[in-house]
Amino acid sequence: MVRTENERIQLLLHGDRQAFAELYEHHKTAIYRYCLRMLNDSAAAEDAAQETFIKMFANIRHLQKTESFLSWLFSIARNEVMMHLRRNRRNGVQSDEDVWDETTPYDLTISAETTEIVQRLLQNLKSEYREVILLREYEQLSYTQIAEITSNTESSVKSRLFKARKALTKRLKEYYT
């Protein structure tokens, strides 16, 4: 019998392990992919994803609306990712206007496949720009959901997406023309 997500959540509220396993199975790829693309470290991504699902189980009763489950789950994953990033943050002052992280990836554009370049450029975006791209392009989330997950306004999400895309396309211009 295939249960709906709402039914799984209701069962999980009563501690049903089968419902937990089904929710995990349904969302594990998206959560792991988000953690991996944000952290660029498979071990750290596994840790963050594991903690996300454990916290999902432990805190499911704090979920306000079942229809917000996906945003809520990504918020947990985001908190885990941010904790890892803070722990590993390098020292150095960066301009708020700058979209790129410390490493300038210009040299990457020499002799590499476009997909590989895009992946590496993504890794070099600042986390606040990388996360909106990942949540939009990979997870197909709406601006409203991204705003909920990142605790930002929709206007800020729009602006970050635009800046990130503009920065990426600028670097990739020679491959697209």
Binding site: Y24, K28, T29, Y32, R33, L36, S42, E46, A49, Q50, F53, I54, T114, T115, V118, Q119, I133, E137, Y138, R165, L168, T169, L172, K173, Y175, Y176, T177
Partner: peptide, 25 residues
């Protein structure tokens, strides 16, 4: 250009979750 970027991102989207994560969770 941003449509091309979107297509490229779609191509690299799939990813396999390691079995170790299943086991751990």
């Amino acid at each position: 250009n941003i449509l091309s970027l979107k297509n490229t991102l779609t191509v690299i989207r799939p990813m396999t979750v390691p079995a170790s994560l299943d086991q751990r969770v």
